[in-house]
Each structure stands twice: as C-alpha cells, then as structure tokens.
Design a binder for these strands. Structure first.
Length: 422
RNA sequence: GUGGGCGUAGCUCAGCGGUUAGAGCAUCGGACUGUGGCUCCGAGGGUCGGGGGUUCAAAUCCCCUCGUCCACCCCA
C-alpha cells in the first residue's frame, strides 16, 4: 500500500468544515479592509526565494523543496507566500494602477523540516500584503484586521507581541553593539548561541536556554538603539494600536527568520500549540520590492498558520464541527419504491433538502439505524404501503410520531418541518 | 541533521518467552419477518510495521530498517 509522504497530511471531514469556516470569515473580513484575493503559483524559480528570504537563512539553506525541471532549471516549492506575491506585483506592474495595493492569499507552503506538533512539510497559510504605504497606520490597521479575525473566530488565549528591528541603516549599528556586549561572554553561551554569534547574533536574543536568557537580559535593547525614523515609526504604531483597542506587549528580543523584515515585526502566540507556539506572524518589508527588481515600494504583511489555527479552534471546544442543517433520511423498501424514489429524491435535493439514503435494499431496521446515526431529525419512509396510497410516511425521530403525507405535498411538509426554502 | 517515546483488529488499547493473540468502541446480523436510540446474543475483521537473529518455542528478547509522535535547530 502507498501512503502519503512524511509531513504531507490529509485533512479529513469533519475538520475540513473548520477550514471552510475560517476561510469564509477571513475572506469576509479581508474584503471589508479592502483586500482582494491573489492566486499565485506554488512553484517559483529558486532565485526568487533565495534572494528575498536570504541566502543564509535556514529556510533557504536547508528547508526548501528544490528540483531541476526537465530543462534543468532550478525551481522550488514555495516555502512562504510573500515572495511570490511581490513577484506578481512587480511582474504585472500593479504599482502602476494605484499607489496602494492590498492582497490576501491562502494555500499550501512547503518546508523540508522534521515534522512535530504544529509543524508539517506541507502546511497552509492565509496571508495578506499591503504595498505602497510606509505609514505606521498601515502596520496598526493590518494588525487590527488580523486580531479582529481571530476574535471573530472566537480564538482565546492568544497574545500579540510586537518589536521593531530597525532599518537597513540602524540595524547593523545595533548588531555591532550587541556583538560588543556579547564578546567577553561568548564562552558562557550555549553551543547553538556560539554559532549564532557568528552567523546571526540577533538570534541569541530569543534563545530558550536559561543561561543565554540570563546573559541577554542585560544586553542593550534594540528598541533603544534604532534610529530616529524607526523609533518614530514604532511609537506611532503603538499609538495607533492603542487607539484601535488592540492589546499587545513589547518583545524587544523577538527576531524574525526572514531577512527582508525591517521596522515593525510581530508574532501572535498561543498556549496549547506545543513548542511551535506562533499562530501568525509578519512585519514590514520596505525594500523587498526594490530588491526583487521593482520600484522602491514599501510593504507590510502577515501569514497565519492554518493547521495551528485549526488546532486551537478544535481544542477550545465550542467550535461547532458541522454547522450544516441536519439531514433528512429516506428509507426505501423494495424495488418498486426504489424506482419511484429517484424522482422524489432528486426533487427534494434540488430544493435544498440535505437528503441521505441507503443503497442495496437493506432492511428497514438497518436503514433506520443509519438514519439515527446520521442524526436525521426526520425520516421519510417509502414502501409498498405508501406507494398504494401515493404517499410517503414522515417520521419525527425525536418524538417518534409518524404521519402519512401525499407525495406531491412532501416538499411543502418538509419546508414547515425544517425550514428549508422551497 | 540530532535526541527520546511509540508501532498488536477500522479506532483506543491490554497481553511483554509457553495452547488457537484479547477487550471496549465501531461494522454486520439476530432477538423484534415494515420502524432508530436502550438491552441481550452472535458474526466478520490481525503477515502483532517490515527484515534478520537467539530459542524446543518470539507479539514478547537482540540487531537492522521503515513509519509515527514529541523535543532540539528553525519556523506559520
């Protein structure tokens, strides 16, 4: 037998109904904020990702699904959504239509990592991107939209943490400061952080090892080190968030894994996700559009981890797994009834009745059992007795009451019983 | 890539050297021949993840391998 590839999971009902509802809410809210859906390919030329995400990031160095196509060109299954959207933005010269463009997308992403709780090789994101405005109001408003979506979904126990990573001018200066601070403490850092010290010193800030946490707690804060422009931008973001009644906390030690982020970055974390506790994250990426060959257009965006979100919604219980109307079941007894049932069944279904049936001439008992199992509130019974009087029996499964209704009035009767509009 | 836990029926698991591998739930049937839920009775369903080894005897012990889960790295 052939099973699925490691880290590539099937999403089965009834869980798919959670996904559908999340997607529906997201589309609704994003539309209200002026975002339109964009659909981009799931495979791109490899260079798009290595240039945008950063050559030396873990994603590019060891997590990409990269293949040579039949002409030998290196192509990659997208590990994230921002780069393809930026590519499309530039390719179609969308900046020419309007100084502002807002897009959202949803779909699978791929990273070759070891699967664990909340982490898969194929996972799904819902993301949004705003191009063209570097005003801090965009940062705040987009965050507010995201928080609103989570509220609408009834998500509890999540917290928003924000930070500023400075810009291309001031971040290198902070990096120097941090390196100076760490220099004489390097030997006390954990193995990983000694490596981080060389590769990406900012990463030492969010190390989980107690020793490193202690050391970096005395490190200079990036929020004190950023330049005037960045500081001002960040102050405004915080101010606007407060005006929007969005709760947040500052986390000057939060670092992002993608090189293109500058200034505002954030993460929404939740309890109950295990070690991978971020359910959404993002930030500002002025400069990325230009780096990828477009005009110097600023950007801001985020991505939500669908699997993680679905996990949280499932765990906090009050999620109604199946919001659909309960089905009506039709019990068919005998070949003659079967023959005359086809027309009735088609008619009812086309009028919006969610109608289930059994196949293969099963006993009435077996059919009733299945009707009960499926949660049918009403059962139609069609057998020789009913055919003789050109009627069908309708049984109320809660009260056990049963009555005969003539065939041409079944639809009408069901309408009054279950409120289907016919 | 590294470390640890776990792989026995569709699902959750028991059995941990000794008859023919079990239970609960689920499925199917019967008691109740055209009426569900409750109860009772019965049936089907297993290469005990795979391969090799030790032994008179392996689901059980050893080795290898695959899968899965959790954690690290890193990230949504």
């Amino acid at each position: 037998m052939i099973n699925s590839i490691r880290g590539f999971n099937d999403i089965l009902p009834p869980e798919t109904s959670i996904w559908q509802q999340v997607e529906k809410e997201a589309r609704g809210i994003f539309a209200a904020y002026g975002f339109s859906e964009i659909r981009v390919p799931i495979v791109e030329k490899t260079g798009l990702f290595s240039r945008s995400i950063g050559e030396t990031t873990d994603i590019v160095e060891k997590e990409m699904y990269t293949f040579a196509d039949r002409h030998g060109e290196s192509i990659t299954l997208r590990p994230e959504g921002t780069a393809p959207v930026v590519r499309a933005y530039i390719e179609h010269k969308i900046y020419g239509n309007d100084p502002v463009a807002k897009f959202y997308y949803l779909g699978p992403m791929f990273r070759y990592e070891r699967p664990q709780k909340g982490r898969f090789r194929q996972f799904h994101q819902i993301g949004a991107e705003v191009f063209g405005i570097d005003d801090p109001a965009v940062d705040a408003e987009t965050l507010e939209m995201l928080v609103s979506l989570f509220q609408r979904l009834g998500l509890e126990g999540v917290s928003l943490q924000i930070n500023s990573l400075g810009c291309k001018e001031c971040r290198p200066l902070y990096k120097e400061k941090l390196l100076n601070f760490l220099q004489d403490k390097k030997s006390q850092l954990c193995q990983d952080c000694q490596r981080r010290y060389e590769i990406n010193p900012l990463r030492t800030l969010d190390c989980k090892s107690p020793g490193c946490v202690e050391i970096t707690s005395h490190a200079p804060s990036i929020l004190d080190a950023v330049c005037g422009g960045c500081k001002n931008h960040f102050e405004k973001v915080k101010e606007y968030l407060a005006l929007s009644h969005v709760n947040f906390s500052l986390n000057p030690k939060m670092v992002r894994g993608l090189d293109y982020y500058i200034r505002t970055t954030f993460e929404i974390t939740a309890l109950g996700l295990g070690s991978q506790n971020a359910v959404a994250a993002g930030g500002r990426y002025d400069g990325l559009v230009k780096d990828l060959g477009g005009p110097d257009v600023p950007g801001f965006g985020f991505a939500i981890g669908m699997e993680r979100l679905a996990m949280l919604l499932q765990d906090n219980g009050q999620w109604r797994v199946d919001s659909g109307q309960s089905p009506v079941f039709i019990v068919i007894l005998g070949d003659k009834a079967e023959a005359s049932a086809f027309g009735l069944i088609k008619n009812l279904r086309q009028n919006g009745v969610r109608l289930e049936r059994d196949y293969g001439n099963k006993s009435i008992k077996a059919q009733m059992k299945r009707a009960d199992k499926l949660g049918a509130k009403f059962v139609l019974i069609l057998g020789d007795n009913e055919l003789a009087s050109n009627s069908v029996a309708i049984k109320n499964m809660e009260s056990g009451e049963q009555e005969k209704v003539s065939l041409d009035r079944v639809g009408e009767k069901l309408k009054t019983l279950i409120g289907v509009s016919l």
